[in-house]
Design a protein around this nucleic acid. Structure first.
Lengths: 240, 240
DNA sequence: CTAAGTTTTTTCCAACTGGTCAAAATTCAG
DNA sequence: CTGAATTTTGACCAGTTGGAAAAAACTTAG
């Protein structure tokens, strides 16, 4: 359960064919569109990893190419050889991020039972907050700024997925397997409580104090959230 | 229930005597430390209000003095006459913010009953997310960046307050009035779920769609959270 | 009204920003 | 080993950034 570094390998590695070609064509003033070379692939990954580090802390405007280049261990012009503009790096990061971010919700299975399903959804989200805190912060940063660069994806992909899963939740409620409540706000509350441990990590650490700061705090959080949601969503026996 | 503009009046108006003097002394190269003039007070408020707007969207590094000056309706040098450095503005904002931010928790009364107390704590926090979204985002931005400028306040004032209220919660649990659970994570979950509606506003709006976007969404959220926490924290009758 | 104090504007600056370009260094296919 | 393609570097640029300085404009107490 390593929570540090290298964590974005899977994220940065899946940028969607189309984008690759795009980036390539843009990155290289030379005419032809060729497959990426080994060095191109490696360096792009190094850059995206560094960019994740910097963007997730300072947001788009607050991050500088110099900074990213330094973290990536290369010169600024060299970095710009791979990604001709700052926005391009951010775009690639966000595109990959959204995929990863929605994956856990996608797994929630309508044919399963609500409590195991919701419980493991919470677990997965909490694990992501633990293992990919920078991704969580990158996302949060974008949201805070009004999501200018991903608003369409939010309004399409994300909204559709949530709509679909809200239906699943409503189904469970109709079957009396889940307390009747607002499925959208239910999903929001799971997002909020789990991502909190990545986004407000400093605060959580400061409040818990040095004594409770091992990875154990995630176990405690998991236990607490499980209790909260399982109790909170247990259906009342019809009457009263 | 106005949720827009002018909302920071009370925030920016309470900068703590000591700070005022400090700011004054620093702002004016002239020797003596005099009480603030009317214009100074007014303009400082205008600037802080503008700075709140800008900092809350772009974070400290992403915000520029020019931007703040423009929103404040004055020239950059003029603004710098009142606050000689960018950091100073941010510091003032954060100091006032922390006060306001912790107020609701402070009100949680040990002599009251847990459910009404917790319920109204949630209400108050949700109202703050609705009425002071910029303040919430300002705070979130600082957290995302690792709280570099307020870490001491977090580790002292905030931690102490939370420790104190955690004891209150534990007391209620001992009396069997509240489900036994981790009081710290309980507080975190209230923070997370309520602030989510300010910090991730774009996402919430996008997901709920145009139909559910009136202020009514806060009522829905309040109802949902109330249900979640009230059910989730109801103590089980001893056995089992 | 006037002079001292306050506020605002104009001009300026050095450092930093995102980004360009051509030359140099390196890699790699044949 | 060689020549073409790729990668890296150094020098550079125009625009922006936080901030300084000083003079001009405005308030205000007496």
């Amino acid at each position: 359960m390593p929570a540090t570094k290298k964590s974005s390998a899977d994220l940065t590695a899946a940028p969607k064919r189309q984008h690759k070609a795009e980036a390539k064509a843009a990155a290289h003033p030379h005419g032809k569109v060729r497959p990426l070379t080994r060095i191109q692939r490696e360096k792009q990954d190094v850059i995206l990893e560094a960019a994740l580090e910097v963007f997730s802390m300072h947001g788009f405007r607050g991050a500088t190419i110099d900074q990213i280049a330094e973290v990536a261990g290369m010169s600024k012009p060299n970095l710009l050889y791979y990604f001709p503009r700052k926005e391009e790096i951010h775009r690639r990061l966000m595109a990959a991020l959204l995929e990863t971010w929605l994956a856990p919700l996608k797994e929630m299975d309508a044919t399963g039972d609500p409590f195991p399903e919701i419980r493991s959804y919470i677990r997965r989200k909490l694990e992501m907050a633990r293992d990919y805190p920078r991704e969580s912060r990158l996302f949060a940063n974008e949201m805070l700024q009004g999501a200018p660069r991903i608003i369409e994806m939010i309004e399409l992909d994300l909204k559709n997925l949530v709509d679909e899963k809200a239906q699943v939740l409503l189904g469970w409620m109709d079957e009396g397997k889940l307390a009747r409540t607002d499925p959208y706000h239910l999903i929001f509350s799971i997002w909020a409580t789990t991502q909190h441990y990545a986004d407000f990590d400093v605060q959580v650490r400061a409040v818990l104090g040095p004594s409770r700061n091992g990875e154990g705090r995630f176990e405690d959080a998991a236990r607490y959230l499980e209790q909260l949601f399982m109790h909170g969503l247990t259906p009342k026996p019809a009457g009263r």
